[in-house]
Design a protein around this nucleic acid. Structure first.
Length: 1068
RNA sequence: GGGGAAGUGUCGGAACUGGCAGACGAGCAUGACUUAGGAUCAUGUGCCGCGAGGCGUGCGGGUUCAAAUCCCGCCUUCCCCA
């Protein structure tokens, strides 16, 4: 039945039907399950969302991250894509020609694992998943242009990924290098980073320990663009991502300094420069404090310089270091380890002979793989030097000039405390070990330190000494004050201290001795910049010029120069796997490394491979693939068997959508272009990119690099691939209570052995039995569960009882006695990530069946701050269900009789204002991705229309209102809006309408309510005509009786009326 | 340890350049209509107080006529780096 009726045209029969019986349904109810597929089919037939170049319209390229086809579209995809779709539709209705494509990032490890575990070919597995997920995505009601779909594992796609490889190789951006990878000795294979699990770093498949192994691998020179990648001035990306990328690139300025291995420690046959050890440091100002060197265990020089009696220790250490992760190795928490090579190097600034150590906290490929150890000004070097008894010499004055001194009990006369007080020096008295009462002195400033040294020199009793630590750095003996200036004085001081006090024991350095005193813990090393001390000719150089002056001096003397170092390393793209794009390279015995000619692309991935759980890529054993002919000499060549990192394919997919599988079937050359440049010139770059923040430094950095490289190859004329980026948050699992179980059985020690279990689900709490815990029975909520135990809350407060069960044991269901096992028992869950094993995943398919896509879309927008996300709330969605039902009834149902009283005129003005306000706010909110408030605005408009319905029904204004509501709603609930648009006889399609505009004049209210504050508290609200001037507002405010109550007998200091919004009266 | 983000009712969350804290929902309460309701509609709902009024945006200070918002110090949570 069509219900839309013009004003006054309501036929009697309908009137009777509608108004006759109270409670009778007047229209068919909202049935999303019927209308959604219907419209989706119609839109597809009409190619409503096909994006075609239109030079007369401004373009808008909206892109949302493509899914990896792992089997099912999950709610996270919806959360990412639905609001992105809303915004794409928004731009479209605003008059932009919008491209909003979708595809699949289809290469990757899970497909290969499925092949090994279940014998399904990765291609089959992937393409099956894609067809399933494509259908799931279609139910979402998005405006994806499916004609532009691109799937990265198809030859038409990966041919171009290979083409880019060749292009980058040509440009010198691709190179091959020996590099360490994780290797499993048991599976005899290399592993991807994500296949190495746990702190112990064991192999995901076999559980045996993983080591590092060197392999020839391909890299891309992303570091060439390091500086440019630090520039975000051309893009509007979240601060968080920019910060993460900046930190990841990790630019640091400093100097490269040349140390040399002492000639006697080099093999006799070594070439002259072999002993050069280049060190990068951000602190050349601390060079005089470099008391040792450390090489990474993998450093090539290690083997050459290690002395015979150290060799065994060094080699075993290298072996052990290969097993650790970088994070472990670099941790400041970790106990420092290392071994001495027996060799020495020369510090170029003072010709000091310093020992060369090997330690795992230095990484090869991070800087130069060698560092200078400056223990007085670096935390890790300090820990290392303390552990191995290496000298620690401060060479930078603390900028706060903070010194500390512990006055040993009995080392000074009784009146010393009073003298300190007299000198204005801070201290506290306290016990020293179990020796007696001592003084803990803290000194600030050079003057105070000198005064203190003076004082203590005068008072020190024979047989004692005192030290000033942190700043000042000296030891006061009865006959002299000895400054800590270098390794020699270090040992002299230590010897005197040992002579005076046996407690010093076996300390090897002064610092080690001081390190045993907790009081000094915070002043032994300092990483701030400050004036140089103990640094020969540079002593006294102020902190702010130290680095530049030392760097200039180094460079003059030819032993160093200013340098920039990056944390970022070149992108390792080689993967020893099957399911990826083959690297188009041949190895010829005659010609060496030879790129596959462009015309021969794609290098096809063979289908007929065996997936054995060897762990190695099946390509390694596929003769047909491996054996090739050299394009240069025609001789035999071997194909590269590694494939490319999947991030390669996702680095350029935004261009693939422009003309998917471009030139498929035609041979190409190096002069070809991977996409239709006409499409590219119109659509690229991406205007808005949305997706998860978890790709902050991988995908999002790689794709920027890619675009810059493409620019240098002349393929694009812009610098950045995505102009605007916004990240959504994560939808987490819903917290829930556990099921209740009633267990019969017997006690076995402190645990209870289950013999029979009755299960009450957590939804039927009203029939749960009371918690119990006795000889034969345990009953309560399940708080935790694994294969063999259930933890049950047996009292109201807490009190968990552990129940032992047989793995896979059957349980009786309380209601109908169906089949279930202990594995089905749901346990208590706090907010956690969704995971299948915890059974807290929200399945979009089920939601679509229950509520329809429009409701889910709206709820995903409404429930959370989009950038933040949060736990799913199955209750909250009901509010959206009610709202859309209200919209349905609002549009289709005639008002009830007798409702039409009221002042129609005022109501009309209110409605008009509500309408324009809603347009304005929805527009502004969408512009800034504020999706939750967008829905709130639409709900407000619905409420305003409901309120106005009795008087406005079937008027022109009403029609305008409904028309506006539907157009605004078309973004969020495209099916519902289209259905109502059609049912109210409006011309197809609501999605071809233009975005409504608002008139600021319509927003002005006739009267305004202005709060009046007296001394900051609201004491009255006055209602005035909107155009009242400030004087009138003041007058009205003061005239208000309640204001008078507070103002009457006081003096008015001032009255402020900011923007006519509020009156603030200050009285005394 | 360093860097970043965030702390607002019972819950999700609103609040423009400092200007009426709690929009919009959920939940809860009361009522209406109902054989019934976990449907629908209406009303109420920050806390204390009978009331006038007072107190309220993690805690403590500060700036201001006015602070969730700005400044200083602290606490907690999350993320990244080490």
């Amino acid at each position: 039945m069509k219900i839309w009726l013009k004003k006054g045209s309501l036929p009697n029969c309908v009137k009777l039907a509608q108004f006759g019986k109270p409670g009778a349904r007047m229209v068919d109810p909202y049935h999303p399950q019927e209308i959604e597929p219907k419209w989706q089919a119609r839109w597809a037939d009409d190619q409503l969302y096909k994006a075609v170049i239109d030079p007369d319209k401004p373009k808008f390229y909206a892109l949302t991250m493509l899914p990896y086809p792992s089997g099912d579209i999950h709610i996270g995809h919806w959360y990412a894509m639905a609001p992105s779709d809303v915004r794409a539709r928004f731009k479209r209705m605003q008059g932009y020609n919008v491209l909003f494509p979708m595809g699949f990032d289809a290469f990757g490890l899970p497909a290969e694992n499925a092949a090994i575990q279940r014998g399904i070919h990765p291609k089959t597995w992937t393409l099956d998943n894609i067809s399933r997920e494509r259908e799931q995505l279609r139910t979402m009601g998005t405006m994806f242009d499916w004609d532009r779909e691109a799937i990265s594992c198809l030859p038409g796609y990966y041919r171009w990924s290979q083409w880019f490889f060749l292009k980058f190789y040509e440009m010198g951006l691709a190179y091959r290098k020996l590099s360490p990878v994780d290797y499993c000795t048991s599976c005899k294979t290399t592993l991807a980073r994500e296949q190495v699990v746990g702190e112990e770093r064991i192999c995901e498949r076999c559980g045996s320990p993983v080591i590092k192994k060197d392999l020839e691998q391909w890299f891309w020179r992303i570091t060439n663009y390091a500086d440019e990648l630090l520039d975000f001035s051309k893009i509007d990306w979240p601060d968080r991502i920019r910060l993460l990328q900046t930190n990841w690139i990790g630019r640091s300025e400093g100097a490269e300094v040349v140390f040399r291995v002492t000639p006697e420690d080099m093999p006799a046959d070594a070439e002259p420069d072999a002993g050069k050890l280049v060190v990068f440091t951000t602190r050349p100002d601390t060079l005089w404090g470099a008391t040792f060197m450390v090489l990474a265990p993998e450093h090539p020089l290690v083997d050459r310089i290690t002395k015979p009696d150290c060799r065994e220790a060094v080699e075993s250490y290298q072996h052990q270091a290969a097993r650790q992760s970088e994070i472990e190795r670099l941790s400041t928490e970790k106990e420092k380890t290392g071994v001495f090579t027996g060799a020495y190097a020369v510090n170029p600034v003072n010709d000091a002979r310093i020992p060369i150590w090997v330690a795992d906290y230095v990484m090869m490929g991070y800087g130069t793989g060698a560092i200078m150890g400056v223990p007085a000004h670096d935390e890790r070097d300090f820990a290392f030097a303390i552990k191995f008894g290496l000298p620690i010499i401060p060479v930078i004055e603390r900028p706060d000039h903070k010194g500390k001194s512990l006055v040993w009990p009995g080392s000074v006369p009784q009146d010393f405390a009073a003298r300190l007080r007299g000198a204005g020096i801070q201290f506290r008295a306290g016990p020293v070990a179990d020796v007696g009462e001592g003084l803990y002195v803290t000194l600030y400033g050079i003057d105070q330190i000198e005064r203190y040294i003076q004082l203590i020199s005068e008072c020190l009793r024979p047989g004692h000494w005192n030290e000033v630590v942190g700043s000042g750095w000296c030891f006061i003996f009865e006959d002299e004050v000895k400054r800590l200036e270098g390794p020699v004085t270090d040992q002299e001081i230590l010897a005197r201290c040992k002579a005076l006090c046996p407690l010093v024991g076996d300390s090897r350095t002064v610092m080690e001795m001081l390190d045993r005193c907790d009081f000094y813990a915070d002043v032994l090393f300092d990483t701030e910049y400050g004036a140089m001390i103990n640094s020969g000719p540079f002593s006294g150089t102020p902190g702010d010029e130290a680095v530049t002056r030392v760097t200039a001096w180094l460079s003059e003397r030819g032993v160093g120069e200013a340098a920039v170092n990056y944390r970022l390393r070149d992108w390792l793209i080689s993967r020893q796997r099957y399911w990826g794009a083959p690297i188009p390279i041949l190895y010829c015995e005659q010609c060496g490394t030879v790129p596959v000619p462009y015309e021969c692309l794609p290098v096809l991935l063979p289908d007929d491979v065996d997936f054995m759980p060897t762990g190695e890529s099946p390509l390694k054993y596929h003769d047909g693939f491996l054996n090739a002919t050299c394009p240069n000499c025609g001789g035999a060549a071997t194909r590269e068997s590694d494939t490319m990192d999947t991030f390669v394919c996702s680095s350029w997919y935004q261009y693939a959508y422009l003309s998917p599988y471009y030139l498929e079937g035609e041979p190409v050359t190096g002069e070809a272009t991977p996409w239709d440049l006409v499409e590219g010139a119109y659509w690229a770059p991406v205007d808005t990119y949305t997706g998860g923040a978890e790709h902050a430094v991988l995908h999002l950095l790689y794709t920027r690099f890619f675009t810059k490289a493409l620019r240098d190859a002349g393929l694009v004329d812009f610098d950045e691939p995505m102009l605007q980026l916004r990240n959504q948050g994560l939808i987490l699992g819903e917290p829930r209570s556990g099921d209740c179980v009633d267990v019969r059985g017997r006690w076995e020690g402190s645990a209870f052995r289950a013999e029979h279990i009755i299960l009450y689900s957590f939804e039927q709490q009203e029939i749960w039995p009371a918690p119990a815990r006795d000889d034969q029975r345990i009953c309560g909520e399940v708080m935790d569960r694994d294969e063999t135990t259930i933890k049950i809350r047996t009292t109201e407060g807490g009190g968990l009882t552990v129940v032992l069960v047989q793995e896979g044991m059957a349980v009786t269901l309380a209601d109908e006695g169906g089949e279930a096992t202990v594995a089905d028992i749901l346990y208590h869950l706090d907010v956690e990530k969704m995971s299948k094993s915890k059974k807290n995943v929200v399945a979009p398919d089920e939601l679509v069946a229950a509520y329809g896509a429009d409701t889910i879309r709206a709820y995903l927008m409404f429930g959370w701050r989009w950038e933040q996300g949060g736990p799913w709330d199955s209750q909250g969605i009901e509010g959206v269900v009610r709202w859309l039902n209200r919209v349905w009834n609002l549009v289709l149902e005639a008002p009830r009789p007798g409702d039409s009283a009221g002042e129609a005129d005022g109501d009309a003005r209110d409605l008009q204002r509500a309408l324009h306000l809603a347009i304005k706010r929805v527009t502004e909110d969408l512009e800034q991705f504020s999706f939750n408030t967008t829905i709130a605005r639409l709900m407000e408009l619905t409420n305003a229309l409901s309120k106005a319905k009795p008087t406005a029904w079937a008027t022109e204004l009403w029609e305008e209102g409904i028309g506006t509501l539907l157009r605004l709603l078309a973004l969020v609930a495209p099916h519902l809006a289209e259905e109502l648009w059609a049912r109210t006889d409006r011309p197809y399609s609501v999605h071809l309408q233009s975005w409504p505009t608002w008139d600021e004049a319509m927003l002005v209210e006739q009267t305004v309510e202005i709060p009046v504050q007296v001394n900051g508290r609201v004491r009255a609200r006055i209602t005035l005509p909107a155009e009242s001037d400030e004087a009138a507002i003041r007058q009205a405010a003061l005239a208000d009786p309640n204001v008078q109550r507070y103002v009457a007998d006081k003096e008015i200091v001032k009255i402020i009326v900011p923007r006519g919004q509020l009156v603030s009266i200050v009285v005394k």
